[in-house]
Design a protein around this nucleic acid. Structure first.
Lengths: 202, 202, 202, 202
DNA sequence: TATGAATGAGGGTTCATTCAT
DNA sequence: GATGAATGAACCCTCATTCAT
């Protein structure tokens, strides 16, 4: 139930619509009218709340960055055995990237459109994972002959790539499995690889 | 030496300028005037040759797809020992992605803008690499417990990710090395990893 | 000390801010938001007090007309010898125009914008000066071969012109003096001229 | 007879319409649609020829400045006796200012709207008159106890003032004469005054 | 083949005004 | 009396496209 003159509610609806549309069509490809139409409000109202299109965009990115942080932090908790930790970390990462296509698309748009803020934040947060990796290396769980930044790249890079091209591969190679099944296989092999690399170290 | 009324030459110059600009600013962000200005030709001439902006875009994508094929084919030759083959393949891949940022950016734009043609072609061509990988597996050079598609993902994914975030990592982690030095390190570790995975198989 | 809900006080603050802004940027160039921002009040409050922007403008003009009258009346007092009277009148006029740039700018804006009310009032008030001049002429202090309206024009016209272009002349002629020094020189020469014209009469 | 696609002709018509409208309503008060409507052309065409509204404005100002120069130069020619020279100069100046209200209004708008370019040019050109005045002073025709800049102010200032307020004075003082008759009287008295000041010098 | 004049739709933004609270 | 949410028109400007030359 929505009050007709609830500014905060309007803001939220605009942000949500903007996020979807920016994800779908990018900053340049989304017009304020697109957004206001989707919200059922007038053209000018968006700028009443957000001053400028650019600013609205920034707010969307900030929201996403927060979400990203939040998810990362959540993913980090838990304890258990070394192998379990690796498994859990990889699963969590994969699911994180798999779930929110909106986030990834906006992240890509921002990258291409030269909006570096988000990428910086991402990189900054990702950098936080280095500590984690280094700790695992010190405990002998992960192979310390590789630089932490490389191990991260080795985990997240394939995940990104896989999620982007998986459907096309499926089509071209005529794989009968569902997307979810393929994801499962992929994740299993990624975990297996990381395990092997880790054991090699010992 | 260029004739004053050489339609073909004009076409090529437009295509080349369009490619650069679409790479830099995407389809929506590039105006025909941007392109005609960069070519030093008049406003209307582009559409005289290409009918519509969309059509020009398509032509650019097609050109790139051809280029891509060409580069991939070239990269494949070689002979030598198993280890050398792996090394060469990885180096070639890395350098291929590193050099042509134009291609990658347009590929990304096309992906986001829903222009699936290019992605399909890419996937199709990449699929060709599967054969290669499978052959290496049959020869016992690469580990055959992993699916070829996974091994490819494991190679190209990190490369993409690295090239995209490398500069930000460098900044955030205050790494003193140059980008080229970092690239060298990265490639070395990637090769090392692939070697180990391969040996493990034996 | 200002009560939180003092309508009259708010009105005055709005009028004052509006006057400054209209003077600086004219009617078309000033937005109600400019004004409300400067007052530190909310967007809608101005129209709550003044119904429309046009109406607010009219109120500002009326206020200024009153102020103008008030200043003119004050300027007229004095006694003393004929020469001193001329001197005092010219000095007072000059300083009157020099000091209140706000008034003059709004007057000009109103003139250009076809808001004739203010100009009428001005002319009406200026006409009052005719009596003064005529009295001086009857007393033999001022030259009565010139029409009073001409003598007024001869005084006020140069003052206006001087105040408007003085700075530019200073820049172009590379005059080393300060604006105030130049004003002093100007006034001295204007007085000298009027004295001579008056003496010629006798 | 106007060709339908004559760019230069269109430019001129836009400039002319813009000049009238800027004179009537100022820069801020004139919209590009006002101008395009008056010319019977589409909205975008103006910007095709003039890039931006500001730029169009600048062109109008430049045109006017040239006109101003042209008129000033023309006014300067002629020889004859000292008295005749003064008479001619004053008449020419007066008529110059009287004729082109467009020029004066735009000049005023520009002044108020902070567009200093025109005022600078004006001042610069006016400064050229100093030489003239100084020459007259050296020949003993004009009184050299007054600074040239002051003498100019004494001439142009009243003319401006008179032309601006003349009609209002006429109305308020119930003068029966026509505007032209009043102008004639005014000019006569101005000339008389300048003559006297000049003779006084001898 | 090539130029550039002309159109018209759409985009971001400003702003006076209205109105629920 | 005061706030600020909401509207809708107008404005400047960009741009793909058409067309006369």
């Amino acid at each position: 139930m929505r009050k007709p003159r609830d500014g905060e509610d309007t803001r939220q609806r605009v942000l949500s619509a903007a996020q979807e549309l920016f994800a779908a069509k990018g900053f340049a490809g989304t017009s304020l009218m697109d957004i206001s139409h989707r919200c059922g409000i007038s053209d000018g109202l968006i700028l009443h709340h957000f001053q400028s299109k650019k600013n609205l965009y920034r707010q969307v990115l900030e929201n996403l960055a927060e979400q990203y942080t939040h998810n990362l932090v959540q993913a980090k908790e838990s304890g258990a055995s070394p192998q379990e930790m690796i498994q859990q970390t990889l699963s969590a990462s994969f699911n994180f990237w798999k779930q929110d296509t909106t986030y990834q698309r906006i992240s890509l748009w921002a990258y291409l459109e030269g909006q570096t803020e988000l990428a910086e934040k991402e990189a900054y947060l990702t950098a936080g994972l280095f500590q984690e990796v280094r700790r695992l290396q010190e405990q002998g769980i992960m192979d310390d002959r590789y630089a932490p930044v490389f191990l991260l790249t080795l985990i997240i890079g394939p995940i990104h790539f896989w999620l982007r091209y998986r459907d096309q591969f499926k089509a071209i190679l005529h794989l009968p499995d569902t997307a979810d099944e393929l994801d499962h296989l992929f994740l299993k092999q990624l975990i297996q690889l990381m395990m092997e690399v880790s054991h090699k170290a010992s």
